[in-house]
Simulated scan of single mutants.
Amino acid sequence: MNKAPFSDGHLAYDDIGDGPPVVFLHDGTLNRRVWDQQLHAFDGYRVLNVDARGHGESSTPTTEYLRGEDVTVLLDHLGLESAYLVGQAMGGTSALDTALDHPERVAGLVLSGCGTSEQYWQSDFIVGSLQRQMEYAFNQDTDGYIEMFLRMWVDGPRREPHEVDPKVRERCREMAVHTATHHARPNPVMPGKAADTWNRLSDIDVPLLGIVGELECTDVRDMLDRIVSTVPNAKLDVFAGVGHMVNMEDPDRFTAAVRQFLDGLSGRG
């Protein structure tokens, strides 16, 4: 494990390979292990796989910060001017915030299963699930809280738990338990967001690939559609038969799609 220091702690990250740098940014509540099946699948690139603050082996934040700072802290630590960013869910919002606030640091974007950091929830499935999850949190029921996380972001609105690959579900449960037991605080420090994100999307001038599972919740599908339709050089890839955790449920296709996109940008295609 490598460490990149910030004001009140450090970011843990993997540094694998040589070539144009690609930073992988994981989902909220999980950690950088979501990318295990991608780590060694990008020969010719320098893969930088980082735990966000308050996740995995990174420090729990004690002071306010912005989502995109996890990216800029890592790039500054390594002396890198820019990188390709591949973000899933929370990691995608951090990547997008970086592109909006620090466009010179971003060479290209892959966003999987997310909106901007100013996400909004309207579907009965997500709104109801979030309410139940908050009830579990209020009652200090960690098991219930994590199960609702899995129902929302692994199973999704169109599948029951037994219809999901049990290895994917259990791996996500283990990561969520680690976050709950190692980083939960009575008054957690939450990351700040880039300002006015939806109205600034047309300012993004790097290519963007959006990825979404066919079985993803409608809120995320709608938000990602909105991003792709607004960013000037963007396209959307819909993965059949999978939900929110696209890179874990269909790792080979996910890796191939991202590699093809990056190879086109880096001239390796």
Rank of each mutant, 00 (worst) to 15 (best):
N233I: 04
G243F: 04
V231D: 01
D250Y: 05
M223H: 14
S229R: 10
L224I: 15
A240W: 06
D252A: 07
P251C: 05
I227L: 10
M245W: 12
A234T: 08
D263G: 08
G264H: 00
N247P: 08
M248A: 13
N247G: 13
K235Q: 07
R226M: 12
D250I: 05
V228E: 03
L236W: 15
L265N: 00
N233M: 05
G264N: 08
A257H: 14
A256V: 07
H244F: 05
D250M: 06
G243R: 00
S229I: 02
R253K: 14
K235D: 14
D263E: 11
P251Y: 09
V231G: 01
G243W: 00
A257C: 15
M223Q: 13
E249K: 14
E249G: 09
N233Q: 07
L236P: 05
P232Y: 08
R253G: 12
D237I: 07
S229V: 02
A240Y: 10
F261I: 03
E249F: 11
V238I: 14
T255S: 07
D237F: 15
D252V: 10
I227Q: 12
F239T: 11
N247S: 14
L236D: 12
D225L: 13
T230V: 05
L262T: 00
H244A: 03
Q260D: 12
I227F: 08
V242T: 11
D225T: 08
T255P: 03
V242A: 11
H244I: 03
E249W: 12
L224A: 09
N247M: 15
F254Y: 13
R226H: 10
G264R: 02
R226N: 09
K235R: 14
T255F: 05
V258M: 00
Q260V: 08
A257N: 08
P251V: 03
K235W: 11
G241N: 08
G243H: 01
M245T: 11
D225V: 04
A234W: 14
Q260R: 09
R226G: 10
A240R: 13
A234Q: 06
L265I: 00
I227M: 15
E249T: 10
V246A: 03
V246Q: 00
A256Q: 13
P251D: 03
D225Y: 15
L265Q: 05
D252W: 06
L236E: 06
V231Y: 01
M248D: 12
G241E: 09
D225S: 13
K235C: 11
G264E: 08
V246L: 02
V242D: 00
L265C: 02
I227Y: 05
V231N: 00
P232C: 09
M245A: 15
V242C: 12
L236G: 15
D237V: 13
